[in-house]
């Protein structure tokens, strides 16, 4: 008997969404096959990897990681430029950790200033991440959206509690892209996309953040949720689930014990920065294989590794 390929042709396709403007704009999504299955057909745009930076000196970051950015941590725009010049990410994720009401509680005005400076300093697409506090994020995102009109940033993210304001300001008024964030559940993801549509936000302007988890910490739920979403998007041609997926990896992997335990606490485990990068890289790969079209990492080494990984897995690398 001769070999017969059992590939399935799908009727649906993940939509292509463009972030940023000008020469450095990047497109994500566009696949009509399962993630990384380039041998089946069109994998669309290779997944994009962003580096995370924050608007304050990140006290909780690993010292060895902060050392890489020595001298630029105090100035977020300098930091962004340094990251772009030295590590060549596909985009920058600017996270407003300093705006957190339980932390420094920086004012929206201050954040807007930072956002403007960062946007002026780099020409890569920006992803604007907030505090996880829905009320503060609502105000923060609206103001930043206005200040960065024309930049076509991705706002990460709109949730059920604040999607109306964030969607209206971000996408409708100032023409940015919005990531709709839900908690590891296909039905919730679908529902929020539909609500966004009803608000008037076009599918072309929508991305999904369907939840995130570090490997070992409920990751199986995330991976299965992503599998189900992609199978529905491709197989059932469900247009309410055909948005590309962005997954923040960094905010999950650096706090779990495998990464964060000190060498005094776990002497057998060895170098903690080494553990943290390995944890970030393992989670990043697992998320990409599950179908993320963009991910956010923290360590430049993770970024470099995942770029090599993607180009080789899609068959375009040197290997």
């Amino acid at each position: 008997m001769a070999y017969k390929k059992a590939a399935k042709k799908y009727s649906g396709e993940i939509r292509e969404v463009t972030l940023g403007s000008g020469d450095k704009a990047v497109a994500i999504g566009g696949k009509n096959v399962l993630p990384i299955h380039s041998f089946d057909g069109n994998v669309g745009n290779p997944p994009k990897i962003g580096l995370e930076i924050v608007d304050i000196v990140p006290e909780d970051w690993h010292d060895d990681l902060k050392k890489i950015y020595d001298g630029v941590l105090e100035d977020t725009a300098e930091w962004a430029k340094f990251a772009v010049d030295n590590f060549a990410p596909d985009f920058i994720c600017l996270r407003f950790a300093g705006a957190d009401p339980d932390g420094k509680n920086k004012s929206v005005e201050e954040c807007v200033e930072t956002a403007k400076k960062v946007a002026a300093a780099v020409d890569l697409p920006l992803v604007i991440a907030g505090t996880k506090n829905v009320e503060k994020d609502e105000k923060l995102f609206s103001a930043v959206a206005e200040a960065l009109a024309g930049e076509n940033v991705l706002i990460l993210s709109a949730r059920e509690e604040n999607y109306k304001t964030v969607g209206a300001a971000g996408a409708l008024a100032y023409k940015h892209k919005i990531a709709a964030e839900t908690s590891v559940d296909i039905n919730l993801a679908k529902q929020l996309n539909i609500l966004m549509n009803q608000l008037g936000v076009q599918n072309e302007d929508l991305v999904m953040n369907v939840g995130s988890a570090a490997v070992g910490y409920g990751f199986e739920y995330l991976s299965s949720t992503m599998d189900r979403i992609i199978l529905a998007a491709l197989g059932q041609n469900d247009s309410t689930l055909q948005m590309p997926i962005i997954t923040p990896v960094s905010t999950e992997t650096w706090t779990v014990k495998e990464s964060a335990a000190s060498e005094d606490d776990e002497p057998a485990w060895g170098s903690s920065i080494e553990r943290a990068i390995q944890m970030e890289v393992a989670t990043a790969a697992a998320v990409l294989v599950s179908g993320a079209d963009a991910i956010i990492v923290r360590h430049p080494k993770s970024l470099a590794t995942m770029k090599t990984f993607i180009s080789n897995m899609l068959g375009s690398g040197l290997n």
Binding site: V215, G216, Y217, G218, F219, E220, S223, S224, E258, E266, A268, W269, G270, S271, E274, R275, Q278, M279, V281, A282, T283, A286
Partner: peptide, 19 residues
């Protein structure tokens, strides 16, 4: 090493469970 084992064994433990 613990550095590569910790994430890989953790992921395996997640993936091979009753959904």
């Amino acid at each position: 090493t613990y550095a590569n084992a910790l994430p890989l064994f953790a992921l395996r433990q997640n993936i091979f469970t009753d959904p």
